[in-house]
């Protein structure tokens, strides 16, 4: 089991108020799964994602990553775990503006124990893997949004992490570019990469194998994507919309033809 989460609680204190962001979450994720975590804002999905990424610690409960109990670790140990086990992909890419693509991808290796030996070579390999072999020396400002996110994915992959953790990875991209990134995720998944995507968009979640839905800090459903009722409903609605749109297009076309024939 790559990820085991047991009775996870997270309580924030904002002033005098206590916010119960997670109220006893249990999740298991196996190696090579492609999971989408979904929920409205305030559902606790960001909190869960921060804990999954070892950026935050649970108030109560256990989070075991690759057999290591992360809930017992200090800040430096967590940093090492983030470096070795987790690859982050953020909504807004988070590339260093003055660094080239290779330098950006090298960043996690700089902070790894032995990885910085041959870092450049490994970074180049990761960039080739995401299809940016010809953009090594470009700076973020010289690249399109999709290319930037590919650089970020390469950076997430460079240390060969146990999980690729993506937080709304297509939130800042247009639909064509989003498709491109999701195809990349799919290819990585086919290569055996475990992927967790946090999103609120059903079409993005549709690329995953399994959807975990959160509401008010609890898991309300955890099903394979094709069995998830909300997702199925959305797919049907989408299909219907497509159908109507197609029909409308046809009727417009036929009336135009009729008009032309008259």
């Amino acid at each position: 089991m790559t990820i085991t989460i047991r009775q996870l609680h997270k309580v924030y204190r904002i002033g005098d108020e206590r916010v119960h962001a997670l109220r006893g979450v249990d999740i298991e994720i196996k190696k090579n799964e492609f999971v989408a975590i979904m929920g409205a804002s305030g559902s606790g999905k960001s909190t869960l994602m921060n804990i999954l990424g070892c950026l935050d610690k649970p108030t109560r409960g256990a989070y075991t990553l690759n057999g290591k109990p992360t809930h017992k670790m200090g800040a430096a140990e967590l940093a090492a775990v983030r470096n070795k086990e987790i690859g982050f992909v953020f909504q807004s890419f988070e590339l260093l503006p003055r660094a080239t693509a290779v330098q950006n991808v090298m960043l996690p290796l700089i902070y790894s124990k032995k990885g910085w030996l041959g870092a450049r070579r490994r970074a180049k390999k990761a960039l080739e893997r995401v299809g940016l072999g010809d953009r090594m020396g470009h700076r973020p400002s010289q690249m399109s949004g999709g290319q930037r996110q590919r650089v970020a994915v390469a950076r997430a992959l460079v240390n060969e992490p146990s999980i690729l953790l993506a937080d709304e990875p297509t939130g800042n991209l247009d639909s064509t570019t989003s498709e491109e990134i999701l195809r990349l995720f799919k290819a990585l998944h086919d290569d055996g990469q475990t992927i967790v995507i946090v999103t609120h968009e059903e079409d993005i979640a549709g690329h995953s194998e399994r959807i975990i839905r959160l509401r008010d800090g609890r898991v309300i459903s955890d099903l394979p994507t094709h069995q998830d009722p909300v997702h199925r409903e959305w797919v049907q609605k989408a299909a219907a919309t497509l159908h109507t749109m197609a029909a409308q297009t046809r009727s417009v076309e036929s009336s135009q033809t009729a008009g032309a024939g008259a």
């Binding site: 940093a79 090492a80 983030r82 470096n83 988070e94 960043l107 996690p108």
Partner: peptide, 12 residues
């Protein structure tokens, strides 16, 4: 934040 997320320890 990014450097820390990719594994920079506080000491570094």
């Amino acid at each position: 934040g990014l450097r820390k997320a990719v594994g920079a320890r506080p000491g570094i």
